[in-house]
Design a protein around this nucleic acid. Structure first.
Length: 572
RNA sequence: CGGGGCGUAGCUCAGCUUGGUAGAGCGCACGGUUCGGGUCCGUGAGGCCGGAGGUUCAAAUCCUCUCGCCCCGACCA
């Protein structure tokens, strides 16, 4: 029997000064986590129970989907990372260290290298494929800016799975099984979530989906189509065709003075043109030199799309004013595609392709061009989809207006292909006797982040409102009259009965006033509450309620057990 | 890494500008009171004012360095 008096659960009224988001505040106040250092937390007993419940759900669904659990080392030798090339590329996020012999290691932020290394030594034949291995383990990524408690820690718990297949079709099947398993996991947790197409980022690979728990405080923006179900991370989101405006008779190209007018707003109002009739020219700095990106004046460039369009470019950032002055010889705000230095690569978003008569920088200080016409005036630019999709843009699949919402990324699955197996020579012999690299997939799920997301989604002004599957305990039995031995005995026997029926119960037996107990009950947010003591006990009753609606019902003590079981059942 | 800010009691913070015996609320301990939504009253314990150096008769306060932390931005499975 878990008695609060003997448990380790200390709630606080004060919010830690560094807790910004509600999940962090409530986890700290409810005694679930304690910060040790920036982005590094102790999981206190009450918090760990929730983590354990999620882990059990994850294991159940992973096992059901044919994955097999193992645990890999968290400390990994540098050689493996040098072999994959990521020792150099991963950057400062990789926590590196040396042992007493000066050998280099890192604390694993992910495990592609380790798993690929032992699989290549164990597995030689197509007959041994496919398989899928997973672990639930502590990772470390030395984030530039850890924040939001467990939502973006440096040390964090993650479930990661890696699949190895002989063929693309096999990978597709495993990927689909994982995708379904993830859906079942988040459904089993009672969370509202969406699956969206995602950019593959530094992990690489061909196809990728993110699982987003919807929350207004989410760090990621998600585009979705209410009509056809299309969903994508805003970084990745595409949009339907631009409607081409009616062709206007191209008037003669004209240079106009726009003294000091640099921004789109300034130029548009100075020239009395709508922003859609301007072309915005952005200069980016890459390791391959300057690149110019064009987009319609009222829109933004999506840097992820731009980087993908510039295949082979690793670093992309907006060029500084000094650099633009030095290399292009003109101040920012007046750069344009007409007559630009031939050495500079120009990429144009499709939003500008349909413009027949637009204004843009003249490549001369304090001047812009008007009546610009693509074919007539601009040297050939490459067109690509570069625009940041916004709410109301047409869906790329069905053309309906897209919606934009925010979410917390809790899962991310990738088709890796042969990126790591080729680099690390993880090969198998196929039926024809030839050697081929294994085809891999990897499937991550943030454990701590999912619990945090559940709180972001489930809380009110008084505290956490747990979904039953993730609640540290299902039921809180409040012994309201700690000084009344009869009432406390009744409460205790109710707890024992519940436990006898397999229900996990926290028994608040503390010598505290009712007000304290009620406030704490709301704060820690267990789904079902039973109050035994005080006025209702004097009338021979127990008072039952659910955290999410707090509607109280009084039942005779003898009926408390069946009624509680019924309430729990209703929450499932 | 760029910009801004903070380190004073277990927690949240005042005091610093203008140097002179270390403060409040919450929490904790004890006594009383109260007992269905964080009771009320009293008493008390608790601090090398992040660390080092400097200025000064005197430093939480001024200066330098350092460590840690937070916020915004860039970045990011």
């Amino acid at each position: 029997m878990t008695r609060w008096s003997g448990y380790y659960l200390h709630t606080t009224r004060e919010v830690p000064s560094d807790a910004e988001v509600v999940s962090h505040q409530l986890m700290a106040r409810a005694g679930m986590i304690k910060k040790l250092a920036a982005g590094i937390y102790t999981y206190l007993p009450f918090g760990w129970r929730s983590i354990a419940k999620l882990s059990a759900i994850v294991r159940r669904e992973m096992d059901a989907a044919g994955a097999v659990e193992l645990v890999m080392p968290s400390i990994q030798p540098a050689e493996l990372w040098q072999e994959s090339g990521r020792w150099q590329r991963y950057g400062k996020e990789l926590l590196r260290m040396k042992d007493r012999h000066d050998r280099e290691f890192c604390y694993g932020p992910t495990h592609e290298e380790v798993i690929t290394d032992f699989v290549r030594r164990d597995v030689k034949s197509y007959r041994q494929l496919p398989f899928n291995l997973y672990q639930i383990q502590t990772k470390f990524r030395d984030e530039i800016r850890p924040r939001f408690g467990l939502m973006r820690g440096r040390e964090f718990l993650m479930k990661d799975a890696y699949s190895f297949s002989a063929t693309e079709e096999s990978l597709d099947r495993v990927y689909e099984a994982m995708r379904n398993a993830y859906c079942r996991i988040f459904e089993a947790c009672g969370l509202a979530y969406t699956v969206v197409e995602a950019d593959t980022g530094t992990i690489g690979g061909s196809s990728s989906h993110e699982f987003m728990v919807t929350a207004a405080t989410g760090e990621s923006a998600v585009v979705h189509c209410p009509a056809c179900g299309y969903g994508a991370n805003q970084e990745k989101a595409e949009r339907g065709e631009w409607t081409r405006p009616p062709a206007e008779p191209p008037a003669a190209l004209e240079k106009v003075a726009t003294p000091g007018k640099k921004t789109i707003e300034e130029v548009a109002s100075f020239l009395a043109l709508p922003k859609e009739k301007l072309v915005k020219t952005l200069v980016y700095n890459t390791e391959q030199g300057l690149v110019v990106a064009l987009v319609r004046g009222d829109r933004e460039i999506n840097p992820v799309k731009l980087q993908n369009a510039l295949s082979g470019v690793d670093h992309l950032e907006l060029a500084s004013e000094e650099r633009i002055e030095r290399e292009l010889g003109l101040p920012t705000g007046f750069v344009g595609p007409v007559g630009l230095d031939e050495g500079v690569r120009i990429l144009a978003d499709r939003s500008v392709a349909g413009l027949d008569d637009f204004a843009c920088g003249a490549n001369e200080a304090d001047h812009h061009l008007i009546h610009v016409h693509w074919q007539r005036d601009v040297r050939l630019a490459e067109f690509a989809d570069l625009v940041l999709v916004v709410e109301g843009d047409p869906c790329p699949r069905c053309g309906s207006p897209l919606g934009l919402s925010r979410g917390i990324e809790v899962g991310h699955i990738f088709k890796l292909g042969t990126k790591y197996s080729e680099a690390m020579k993880c090969e198998f012999t196929d039926e024809a006797g030839g050697n081929r690299p294994m085809i891999m997939g990897c499937y991550g799920l943030g454990i701590g982040r999912t619990v945090a997301a559940a709180i972001e989604q489930g809380h009110d002004a008084d505290g956490i409102v747990w979904p039953l599957p993730l609640a540290p305990f299902s039921v809180l039995v409040v012994g309201l009259s700690p000084n009344d031995p009869v009432a406390m005995a009744a409460a205790e026997s109710l707890v024992a009965e519940l436990e006898g029926r397999g229900v996990d119960v926290l028994f608040d037996d503390r010598d505290e006033r009712p007000g304290v107990k009620f406030k704490d009950a709301d704060l820690i947010g267990l789904p079902v509450r039973a109050v035994v003591g005080g006025k209702s006990f004097a009338a021979g009753q127990a008072e039952l309620s659910l955290r999410h609606d707090r509607e109280r019902i009084s039942v005779p003590l003898a009926e408390a057990l069946p009624k509680l079981l019924e309430l729990i059942d209703r929450l499932r």
